[in-house]
Amino acid sequence: MSEVMVQATDVHKSYGSHEVLKGITLEVKRGEVLCLVGPSGSGKSTFLRCINHLERINSGRLMVDGSLIGYREHNGKLYELKPSEASAQRVGIGMVFQKFNLFPHLNALDNVISGLVRVKKIDKATAEKEGKELLERVGLADKFQHFPAHLSGGQQQRVAIARSLAMKPKLMLFDEPTSALDPELVGEVLDVMKNLASSGMTMIVVTHEMGFAREVADSLVFMDGGVVVESGDPKQVLANPQQERTKSFLSKVI
């Protein structure tokens, strides 16, 4: 078991001629929480989506827990994985989206167990038992039967987190998990994420919540224009940024 959970080396990504990621290199150790911050269009969400191969990278190396994501290396060349192999990799990587993306035709419990039943093929009774435990863990013990339309944004996002956790991932990716929430609902989601972090989950969080970054993250990476501008201990980067771009960005958001 390697110490490094995520290892990105010179990751490039373009949409046509527009280069979104211009060589990202970073590392996340097992059990660490990394916060990715930066202005919109800086490529932080794209990078996150590359980590579970929702986006295809153009060059570089992206490893999760020692295995290359989306590709197989053979004789110095990268061969793209078959869809079934890419799906198998995604099982171990949980992802939480800005807009929750709960399945609206399923109730909270069925959302949580959808991966267990449809991917891991666990029988429904066992899956429901696990699903109920997870919903209790995110504070939604009384909402099993509720459909997403009848839940608040904060509750929906907590269901979404439980849905990802059901697959027992070794890594959790959060793509601006609180950006679509009313301000008074942000706290309940961040609390769940804090608990998750303290339980030892490895997490990469794209966020604008600097308080969360300062309090929970082990490291902070500031991205702009498709490159890592600055990274380090969140308290130090936030209090005493070294780069001009970091300073001007932080002065606007804090």
């Binding site: 869809p83 991966g115 449809r118």
Partner: peptide
């Protein structure tokens, strides 16, 4: 399209995503 992404991130195949989501 977020529905397909969410399903993919759970490890569902394309056909499973179509059929159940």
């Amino acid at each position: 399209s977020g529905q397909e992404e969410a399903a993919a991130s759970l490890g569902m195949s394309w056909w499973t995503t179509m059929r159940y989501i």
